[in-house]
């Protein structure tokens, strides 16, 4: 029994022994699961910026998980000051279900409130042995694909929509040809992983498939990580504009008294230095100077927005990804 109480005392001591960081201000940023390194770097920059501007020190706390889970947590009472997500629908829901932000949140910051963006690209194996250049190479019989499941992950939905955008661009109004292309493409998929990182693991660690379809940022990230050219990044000629939307959460910044700080935290993402930092993490940015510096890493391509492909997210979800929707029917075709 004595041992037990000793253990409890030790645990309590350990917890209370943690240094109390006495920052003047505090900010909680909820973000998607794979943005940890990005915001760890950005937070340091922003802390300096805020101190120079106001003389105050800031402590920025980070929460990372899948962005749909984060949106749910915020609606259920996680008092985050800002949300930096990788899916527009997950911020929309903060208005629709939570009434925490106004409907026009996207108009409050430049570029639809997306300080950076990415697109869907291909990762192929050393030397690109199957000679993959564009979407039509993916439906060849000898090519096996790995992609995240559009049913369970935003990453997978983006991939599906990117392929759909290509097919529409290629075949125009010929719905039959578009459907056939999509069915063929889905038929070549060897593994549908439940999430983006799972798909990467399947392709890289387990060595399955010839092409991994995922975010360009993730593709470049892996190609950089393996320095001997084990993997090659391929950006197709047409793809999807994947926005990374940000917003401050009006109800909570009011309660926390952080409105000014939260706004500045997001606006500062648009400065040239911050845009350069974002580009360093393989995201595409809007700043012209930074764009020019990185022109070789981010080849020009035709980017299609969700409105151009399906006329908005609502329609995309109900027509393509709902139960018995287009995706289900296309998969049954083969």
């Amino acid at each position: 029994m004595k041992q037990l109480f000793k253990g409890i005392a030790l645990g309590a001591a350990l917890l209370s022994a943690q240094p109390v960081l006495a920052a003047d201000r505090e900010l909680l940023n909820t973000s998607y699961d794979i943005a940890r390194e990005l915001f760890a770097a950005y937070n340091e920059e922003f802390k300096k910026h805020w101190q120079e501007k106001t003389g105050e020190t800031v402590e920025i706390k980070q929460s990372h998980a899948g962005s749909s889970k984060q949106a749910q947590a915020i609606i259920q009472g996680l008092k985050a000051d800002v949300a930096t997500f990788n899916q527009v629908t997950d911020i929309d829901i903060l208005h629709q279900r939570g009434r925490l932000i106004p409907e026009d949140w996207a108009d409050r910051l430049p570029n639809n409130s997306s300080p950076y963006y990415s697109t869907m690209a291909f990762l192929v194996r050393e030397g690109n042995p199957k000679n993959i250049e564009n979407w039509d190479d993916l439906i060849r019989e000898d090519v096996q694909l790995v992609m995240p499941n559009p049913k369970t992950s935003g990453n997978g939905r983006y991939t599906y929509l990117a392929a759909l955008g290509y097919a529409q661009d290629q075949f125009g109004d010929d719905q039959e040809k578009i459907d056939q292309f999509m069915a063929d493409l889905l038929g070549q998929v060897r593994v549908f992983d439940s999430g983006g990182r799972g798909a990467t693991t399947t392709f890289v660690e387990r060595g399955i498939g010839d092409v991994l379809l995922t975010f360009e940022s993730e593709v470049l990230n892996i190609a950089d990580r393996f320095e001997n050219g084990e993997y090659v990044a391929v950006t197709p000629k047409v793809s999807f504009l994947a926005e990374f939307p940000v917003t401050w959460i009006d109800d909570y910044v009011e309660q926390n008294g952080t409105a000014e700080l939260a706004k500045e935290y997001l606006e500062h993402l648009y400065t040239e230095d911050s845009q350069r930092l974002l580009a360093g993490f393989n995201y595409r940015v809007h700043n012209d100077a930074v764009k020019a510096e990185n022109a070789d890493r981010f080849p020009e391509l035709k980017l299609l927005s969700i409105d151009e492909i399906t006329g908005g997210w609502e329609n995309a979800m109900s027509t393509h990804f709902s139960s018995g929707g287009k995706l289900d029917r296309l998969q049954r075709r083969r």
């Binding site: 990372h64 984060q70 990580r225």
Partner: peptide, 22 residues
């Protein structure tokens, strides 16, 4: 949990976070 690092992140959650971070 809310997954706030340094505040509501327990050790098992921390393992998952690090793993997803490569």
């Amino acid at each position: 949990s809310g997954n706030v690092r340094g505040e509501t992140n327990t050790l098992p959650l921390h393992v998952e976070l690090l793993y997803q971070d490569y």
